[in-house]
Amino acid sequence: MSINLLRLFGGRSATAPVARERLQILLAHERGLLGQPDLLVTLREEILAVVSRHIQLDPDKVTVKLDRGKTVSTLEVDIEVPNGFEAMVRGGRRAAG
């Protein structure tokens, strides 16, 4: 209400609320990224290590992506597995046993 009155009075729209909102969104994003710069690298390495225990993988075919949304973020893990991996697993077991 008071902002509207001031707007009438000043003849120009208040831009500070826009500045405030833009900053809040930007900084929420930047703080997340800068706070844990190695998060994705760490996730990728650990996921690769766990899966590699059971399946032979090409490390270059593992991608980890993090999309930050306003309320919810999604973690996307994409692992390309070579065809015939089951045979490799069985082969591995036989060799171990």
């Binding site: 001031l6 000043g10 208040a14 500070a16 500045a19 405030r20």
Partner: peptide, 16 residues
Amino acid sequence: RAAKGEMLGIDDILEI
């Protein structure tokens, strides 16, 4: 200018 909403206010900056 802050009172007119043309400049970030003190509270805005402190909250951010």
